[in-house]
Amino acid sequence: MEDSLLHHQIRPRFRIETSLTPAEIETKLSKSVSEDQESVGGKVIPGHATLTLPERDQHYWSPQLTLSFEEAEGQCLLRGMYSPRPVVWTMFVLFYSVVAFASLVISIVGYSKWSLGQSAGILWLVPVLMVIFLSLYLVSYTGQKVGRKQMITLHNFVEETLGINIREE
């Protein structure tokens, strides 16, 4: 797998056109997931698949690979996105939202007080919240690095199962 696929993106993606039909992709993935549950598991439904690692190999930062496949102009369009599990993603969205909302409220209150000539010491919290925001980003980036080996496992599984070579978008 190309190293660049996993760099410079929080949620790396790929998009390729293949001569396989959506039904062939679904069949190959279903067969491989049921036969190879030792290394990769998941769910496959028409036009969509979510691949994960077995429970015993998962940790907090374990990724999942979401695939969608559809007929497009005589070819099959296969899209994939590597992402954290939904619970991790939701937690980070919640934390980002809380920090952003707190920054907005503190900024409004602080600038209101400042415009009225009152003490606006509360504005010192804005840089603190920005440091927290940056820390959250760095933690998520570190988590992606921790899950990199597992992302490669999922990537190789799809390439071997479908007999295709995936490059990044």
Rank of each mutant, 00 (worst) to 15 (best):
L78T: 11
L134G: 15
L162Q: 03
K113T: 02
A72T: 13
V128F: 10
L134M: 14
G117N: 01
A120R: 06
R13E: 14
R56I: 07
K31H: 13
S68K: 00
E55W: 13
T161C: 09
Y141V: 08
E71L: 05
T161P: 08
P46G: 05
S107L: 07
V109D: 12
M1Y: 00
Y82C: 04
G121T: 09
L138C: 02
L94S: 04
E71V: 01
V93N: 05
L94Q: 07
N156G: 06
K113S: 07
W89S: 15
P22C: 01
E169P: 05
I45N: 09
E24W: 14
L29C: 06
L154V: 00
T66Q: 00
P22K: 11
G80I: 01
A100G: 02
T90H: 08
P86Y: 00
V139R: 14
G147R: 01
S97E: 12
T142M: 12
V44N: 10
G110A: 08
P54F: 15
T18F: 05
S107R: 14
A23N: 06
E26Y: 08
V93F: 14
D3M: 09
T52C: 03
L136P: 10
W89D: 10
E24R: 10
Q9D: 01
P46I: 04
L136G: 05
Y137V: 14
H7E: 07
T90D: 07
T27P: 02
E2G: 02
S103A: 14
V40E: 15
H59Q: 12
K113N: 10
S4Y: 11
S34N: 05
Q150F: 10
E24A: 11
L77P: 07
G110W: 01
Q118E: 07
K145M: 12
V44E: 07
I132A: 13
W124H: 01
T27G: 11
T66C: 07
L116W: 15
S119R: 10
I16S: 03
T27Y: 13
G42Y: 11
W114A: 08
